[in-house]
């Protein structure tokens, strides 16, 4: 067992545990913190996958911006205590069906993984994925999506401002 595999396994366990903790948490703040933990482990995995730039972006965008926003909203609304008793009879079959379907989806993924990716080899070539390389790609072949994304962000900003404006 190589150190990489060991660290991966540890990270994966933390990650899965955090994810399960997130969806089962009764407290939204805890759920958010679990999700941050999950994001952190994923960021470390990006590092392991030769994606340091994305790892940093993952931390600053997801952990630093998105999840802070979540926490803000949770705290502003005082919505952290979740009372989710099932009240609708319609939804009674919902939970088991969701779990069964989820399990089936996972089984499909596992099946594909075992039959297709089992024999895949290691990385084809070593490559840099620092800000320079990403930037060159963004302002090269991905220029249009990049510009579209910037417009999207602008629109989202305006939308958020309009939505939450005091009437």
């Amino acid at each position: 067992m190589t150190p990489e595999l060991l660290s991966f396994i540890i990270l994966a366990i933390i990650s899965i545990a955090a994810a399960i903790g997130m969806i089962t948490s009764r407290n939204a703040v805890y759920a958010a913190l679990f999700l941050i933990l999950n994001f952190g482990t994923v960021a470390v995995m990006y590092l392991m996958l030769n994606a340091p730039f994305l790892a940093i972006i993952q931390v600053s965008v997801y952990a630093g911006a998105i999840m802070v926003l979540f926490l803000f909203v949770i705290m502003l609304l005082g919505a952290e205590r979740l009372n989710e008793r099932e009240t609708r009879p319609v939804m009674r079959w919902h939970r088991p069906l969701a779990i069964v379907l989820g399990a089936f989806l996972l089984a499909l993924a596992l099946y594909v993984l075992l039959t297709r990716l089992g024999q895949s080899t290691a990385s084809v070539n070593v490559f840099g994925a620092g800000p320079l390389e990403i930037g060159l790609q963004l302002f090269g072949p991905y220029l249009l999506p990049f510009e579209v994304a910037s417009v999207l962000l602008l629109v989202a900003m305006i939308g958020a401002v309009v939505l939450t404006r005091e009437k």
Partner: peptide, 25 residues
């Protein structure tokens, strides 16, 4: 000599808000 030092600094700053937020809450 990590070549994303500045980004790292910014990322760390961005998560340093948690202490205050969580402590206050």
């Amino acid at each position: 000599n990590i070549n994303i030092g500045v980004l790292y600094v910014l990322a760390v700053f961005s998560i340093s808000v948690y202490g205050a937020v969580l402590g206050g809450w």
